[in-house]
Amino acid sequence: MQSSNIPASSQWAISDVLKRPSPGRVPFSVEFMPPRDDAAEGRLYRAAEVFHDLGASFVSVTYGAGGSTRERTSRIARRLSRQPLTTLVHLTLVNHTRAEMEQILQEYSELGLTNLLALRGDPPGDPLGEWQSTPGGLNYANELIELIKQSPEFQHFDVGIASFPEGHFRARTLEEDTEFTLAKLRAGAEYSITQMFFDVEDYLRLRDRLVAADPVHGAKPIIPGLMPITSLRSVRRQVELSGAQLPRELEERLLAAANGDEEANKDEIRKVGIEYTTQMAERLIAEGAVDLHFMTLNFTRATQEVLHNLGMAPAWGAEHGQDAVR
Rank of each mutant, 00 (worst) to 15 (best):
I6L: 03
D202S: 15
L80R: 06
P215R: 12
K19S: 10
W131M: 12
V159E: 01
G311M: 05
Y108W: 04
A281E: 00
E252G: 04
A118Q: 08
R253V: 02
E102T: 01
Y140M: 05
F154G: 02
R36M: 06
V94D: 02
V26F: 08
E305R: 13
E71L: 06
R236I: 02
V211W: 00
G24C: 06
F180M: 09
P7N: 12
R326H: 13
D323E: 13
R205K: 14
R72Q: 13
N259V: 00
R25G: 04
R237E: 11
Y45W: 08
T181I: 13
R43L: 13
G167L: 08
G243M: 10
F157Y: 07
S242A: 14
S109W: 02
S4F: 14
N259W: 05
L297K: 01
T303A: 08
H96L: 14
R207G: 09
E201M: 10
R120Q: 04
L204D: 04
L210E: 05
R36K: 15
E176T: 09
E71N: 06
Y191A: 00
L91H: 10
A286N: 02
H52I: 09
R170K: 15
S60T: 02
G273I: 10
E31G: 04
G129Q: 01
A213M: 02
A187M: 06
G225E: 08
T303Q: 00
S109K: 13
L255T: 02
V59C: 09
T86N: 08
L128V: 02
S234V: 13
K19L: 07
T134P: 04
R270G: 07
G260N: 07
W316Q: 12
A219N: 08
L116M: 04
A171S: 11
A256H: 12
S151P: 00
T86Y: 01
A56N: 03
E143S: 03
E252Q: 11
I76V: 07
E107A: 15
A13D: 03
E319A: 14
Q11G: 14
F58T: 01
